[in-house]
């Protein structure tokens, strides 16, 4: 089924519509980077990678540093485009969309969590959480209740008006989780969300992230080099030699 422009418009009007049971599909993805600035030679990061994220399931990708996990995640989220292959978000190929539509799709269907330092510095905790909804055009008054309840749920009820500079690493990451969930996206994409945290905070954030994703019924695409964390997900893939191999779970055929 190929959705038409109207259906994309429908997503925007009803962002929480559940139309596809595979919100993200990667088909035959190859990604190459230029080896050097001046363009001679290329290095291959991903080669003919297929990946399917099922609704409500969590998927982890493990692999050595530099194996291309982040690259894969960015491609899956439409932040970067593949050299060849297709990325479908709810059945819509990112490559066929202009910047506006692609941004809107990202805004409404995907929530990102990065490793560190990626909160908006001048926004309070609450404003950071509300940002995706405000970008979608909703008013602050409209989206404040959900933002507050998310913060409350993650134990940040008394930190709502703090700036990121006044918060600890663990708190910041919990805010990033709230922000990723704000627009009730289909998929949360997290790139080493606990990588910059100490053991104790890392476990706390891990637990909260997995619980909340289940609670809210979202899919999770997690990139990590922490095997314990990864194996708490439904599916685990290992990225090695430019390709994915299933380590845990049933996986899904594309």
């Amino acid at each position: 089924m190929h959705p038409t422009d109207r259906q994309i418009g429908d997503h925007i009007d009803r962002p929480f519509a559940k139309q596809f049971d595979r919100p993200i599909q990667l088909l035959d993805i190859t990604k190459r980077f230029k080896a050097a600035q001046d363009g001679e030679g290329e290095i291959t990061i991903l080669e003919d990678v297929d990946l399917c994220i099922a609704r409500g399931e969590s998927t982890a990708i493990i692999g050595k540093s530099g194996s291309g996990k982040s690259t894969l995640l960015h491609i899956a989220g439409g932040l970067d485009s593949p050299t060849s292959g297709k990325v479908l978000c709810n059945g819509v190929d990112f490559a066929t969309l202009d910047d506006k539509r692609r941004s809107s799709l990202r805004n409404l269907h995907i929530g990102f969590i990065f490793q560190a330092n990626l909160l908006l510095e001048d926004f309070t905790a609450l404003e950071n959480v509300m940002a995706p909804a405000m970008i979608a055009g909703r008013t602050a008054r409209d989206c404040r209740p959900r933002a507050l309840s998310l913060l409350e749920r993650l134990g940040l009820g008394d930190r709502t008006h703090h700036l990121p500079s006044q918060l600890s690493g663990g708190e910041k990451q919990r805010i990033a989780i709230c922000r990723a969930l704000m627009n009730e996206p289909d998929v949360i994409m997290a790139d080493e969300p606990t990588g910059a945290l100490d053991e104790e905070n890392a476990q706390e954030v891990e637990r909260l992230l997995l619980d909340l994703v289940k609670e809210e019924g979202r899919s999770l695409l997690l990139v990590t080099h922490n095997n314990d964390f990864a194996y708490r997900c439904d599916n685990v893939y290992l990225l090695k030699n430019h390709a994915l191999s299933l380590e845990k779970g049933l996986g899904l055929d594309v």
Binding site: K100, S103, R106, N107, F114, L118, A131, I135, R179
Partner: peptide, 10 residues
């Protein structure tokens, strides 16, 4: 980050 959150380049 803003782009990742869904802002267009413009």
């Amino acid at each position: 980050m803003l782009r990742a959150l869904g802002c267009t380049r413009a």
